[in-house]
Design a protein around this nucleic acid. Structure first.
Lengths: 358, 358
DNA sequence: TAAATTTCGACAATCGATTGCAATTTGAAA
DNA sequence: TTTCAAATTGCAATCGATTGTCGAAATTTA
């Protein structure tokens, strides 16, 4: 019995392989009318007799007609597609942003083409070019870590394609932008730590060519300044943005003669996790002997012991904002396009790892 | 100064808005040749003089020409695009699979269109139809939890589009499939727990219309059978596949007169986390008084205390496998298409939460 | 030098849907 | 019954790239 079904399947597949899809011409021919009428009926345009319209729709259904979006898009000059380029699809923050974008675009019947740059400038350029070739209506991008020039983004604008940058943005390009107020968030985080009684706060910073890491450092410095605390170069560790690098930086910091009593892992929760693990290994008590603050509000920060204080970026909301910004700009495209920046205020999530006072 | 730059930008934008992109006809006109030659040159086809080819490429560069993929695809009848439908983009397992697919497809110069069904059958149908309209070459899908019929997938096949199911698959549809050997993995996990000395193992099961959850239950039952342990209906809790439902199920289990001494959260690590939290609340010691095993190897399972025993599904690898399966099938499409199933063997990750003996 | 091959590039059709304009039909008013 | 406007439908061009066919030019061979 099983084998019969299989054979049938195989024949069926072969049969279908070469078969052409039904087009509006097939429908027109069958009904002895022209393709234009069919098109009008399918697009629910006026100027089609109600009776014939019904007939056309019924026939389309019968023949299992599916519109060829390629042809339609080619003719209409728009694809109702948004291209997204992110460093890594499977990084929590980005997959959440994408989910947010998807949610908003789905409602408007838009499609999403997704690429990941893998933090490579070269691949990022290729992705962008592909999206241009695909004639997407809009490109949404968060630049990769080793991006240094932005000719490829300028290209997007030159081709008349809307460009929205989010999170990691090239400041010098005047485009629509959706960003987090990293500076303010960092400032608040460090202020919170100071208020908890930490006096020697170290910073794990990320690659400074990315605006977000510059801003987070700025916030850190501002907080120190506000409380008249000295800035110590040896407490600022560059390029500590993975768990391993965070751990390494921590070992370095904890081998100083004058130890820090808190570490602000401004790069990510992963580096904060690295800090926590090293502290645990060295039997240094968190938060009493060492305070730890991360960045991003990854799910795991809630369940470590102690739980990790961090900063929530409202990533899904950010995605929705990006998409809606585009739709908004589309709707009043009659007037002038003015570069617009939307800044989202992240939220400090105070947890066990910085609660020295309680 | 600032405002001058802005004004310039605005003018520039408006100017670009209405501008047509350069086409092969523009290039042809400029060089006084025909579009066909331009096309051939750009496609690196033979039968173009080396000198003119160079000239064409140079001119294309100068005019900032970008190929219109829509037109090209329409003509060629293939889009070099793969459509992916998953329940949730930002769920770890799926975002990893997508990353894997992306990696493999990028190398072959294929594009990815991504949709999420949000676990809704209705939305899943819409996604699939969109992808059909887009004339994607292949659709990759993991069905949503409330899928009950598969007419929309049959449709994909009817349109002559390659269909690959992964992880959550409709058994009755004969398509290419990439799955995990859930039954075997569950079997091993439960055997491991029994060998650790647990005698009364409860099961948190997922919606049984999904094949993966049926298989995991089967593995659980087989392990009990192997060790001649009784199957107790009250130890099997249906539909416990979120953290909250896992916690709720645990409270229910721990209020029985005859308590289980281990819980296999076959649905996810999140439900295992729920179990762990309830155990902690009730001051029940893990693993000595209660063993816990999850499923999926989420990042956080490593950092809970105790860390959670779980099952790794090699999600990124799974994505690559899916994509490569497609390319492989493409390459030998001269012969018959035979439904093919690739089964990946997941790996039991033994951690603290089940190590009763040590 | 004449004949036979290659090489090169032009021509025109094609992919499928859309749309401005023209032609036809319908129905109502005169 | 005639006239006129409105409602339908048809015609044909268009979107941009690709490709089979064929003639002209260049090159090789006899």
């Amino acid at each position: 019995m099983q084998s019969i079904v299989e054979i049938y399947f195989v024949i069926f597949t072969i049969y279908m392989r070469g078969k052409k899809r039904t087009t509006i011409y097939d429908i027109a021919e069958k009904l002895n009318i022209t393709a234009s009428s069919v098109s009008r009926a399918l697009n629910n345009s006026s100027y089609v007799n109600e009776a014939t319209k019904k007939l056309i729709l019924k026939t389309a259904e019968e023949l299992n007609y599916k519109r060829n979006t390629l042809a339609s898009n080619l003719r209409k000059g728009q694809t109702k597609t948004i291209g997204v380029v992110v460093p890594r699809i499977n990084q929590n923050f980005f997959s959440n942003v994408i989910a947010g974008i998807e949610e908003a675009t789905y409602q408007k019947n838009y499609n999403l083409i997704i690429c990941q740059s893998n933090e490579s400038h070269e691949k990022e350029i290729k992705c962008v070019n592909t999206l241009i070739n695909q004639h997407v209506d809009c490109i949404v991008i968060s630049v990769s870590v080793d991006s240094n020039d932005y000719q490829h983004l300028q290209n997007v604008l030159d081709q008349g394609i809307q460009l929205i940058q989010f999170d990691r943005v090239a400041d010098e390009l005047e485009t629509l932008k959706v960003i987090n107020d990293n500076e303010q968030a960092s400032f608040e985080a460090v202020c919170h730590m100071i208020e908890q009684g930490y006096k020697k706060i170290a910073l794990l910073e990320g690659p400074q060519n990315l605006n977000i890491f510059r801003q987070r450092k700025e916030g850190y410095l501002n907080a120190l300044k506000k409380y008249n605390m000295p800035i110590r170069e040896e407490f600022i560790i560059a390029n500590a943005w993975t768990k391993e690098l965070g751990a390494e930086a921590t070992r370095k910091l904890l081998s100083l003669t004058d130890l820090p009593d808190a570490i602000f892992a401004s790069t990510s929760d992963f580096s904060a996790l690295g800090v926590l693990e090293v502290a645990n290994d060295l039997a240094i008590k968190v938060p009493s002997e060492l305070g730890i603050c991360g960045y991003s509000n990854e799910a795991f920060t809630e369940i470590t012991s102690p739980s990790i204080t961090t900063i929530d970026q409202f990533s899904v909301y950010m995605g929705k904002t990006v998409a809606n910004l585009y739709f908004q700009e589309m709707e009043n495209n009659d007037t002038v396009v003015i570069p617009k920046i939307i800044s989202i205020k992240p939220k400090l999530m105070v947890r066990g790892s910085t609660l020295k006072n309680s």
